[in-house]
C-alpha cells in the first residue's frame, strides 16, 4: 500500500495543483484510496487532512473501500431511460443482489450509477471496467456477466 501512495506523491508533488492527480494514481493502482493514506498525502502536499478528505468525498468517482473484481457503471441518465434503462437497472441490481453503490458479498461485483457515458444513441449503456457496452438488454447483461473476463 505505502509503495503505491509514495509513488503517486513522488510523481506529482511538484506539479501545480497535484491533489487530484495523486488521488487518481492511488485509486488506479489500488482500486480505492485507503483512509489511512489521507494523513500521508496531506503532509506531503502541505494540505490539511480536512482538505484532502473534502476533495475525496466531493467526487463520486473516488472510493474509500476496495471495489469488487469488476466494477459495473450503469448509466441512469435520460437518453438511456428513454430505451428501458430503468428496467435494465432493476435487473442488474436484482441479478447481482446488490443496490447501486454496493459491492456483492462475494467481492466479485461493484455496481455504480453514472450519468451519461456519451453513448446516448446506443443505449442503454454501461461500462464494465473500461469496456463500454451499448443496447444492453437484461439478457445481454446476463451474457456479459457470465462471459466477460474480470477487468479492473
Amino acid at each position: 500500500m505505502n509503495e503505491a501512495i509514495e509513488a503517486a506523491i513522488a510523481r506529482h508533488r511538484d506539479q501545480p495543483g497535484p491533489l487530484l492527480l495523486v488521488l487518481h494514481d492511488i485509486q488506479q493502482a489500488m482500486g480505492y484510496v485507503p483512509p489511512a493514506a489521507v494523513p500521508r498525502i496531506a503532509a506531503a502536499l502541505q494540505l490539511s487532512r480536512a482538505e484532502v478528505h473534502g476533495v475525496l468525498s466531493f467526487y463520486h468517482y473516488f472510493r474509500d473501500q476496495p471495489p469488487g473484481d469488476r466494477t459495473i457503471r450503469l448509466c441512469r441518465a435520460e437518453a438511456c431511460q428513454a430505451v428501458n434503462g430503468d428496467a435494465l437497472a432493476r435487473h442488474a441490481a436484482q441479478r447481482l443482489g446488490i443496490g447501486f453503490g454496493e459491492t456483492s458479498a462475494d467481492g466479485r461485483h461493484t455496481l455504480e450509477a453514472v450519468y451519461c457515458l456519451g453513448n446516448c444513441a446506443c443505449g442503454p449503456s454501461l461500462l464494465i471496467g473500461k469496456e463500454l457496452h451499448g443496447r444492453v438488454t437484461p439478457e445481454r447483461f446476463d451474457e456479459l456477466l457470465d462471459g466477460a473476463e474480470p477487468a479492473p
Binding site: 441518465a77 435520460e78 437518453a79 438511456c80 450519468y115 451519461c116 456519451g118 453513448n119 446516448c120 444513441a121
Partner: peptide, 11 residues
C-alpha cells in the same frame, strides 16, 4: 467534461 446526458459530440 461533457456531462450533459444526450450529448457526445465532444467524445
Amino acid at each position: 467534461d461533457e456531462g450533459d446526458s444526450g450529448t457526445f459530440a465532444d467524445r
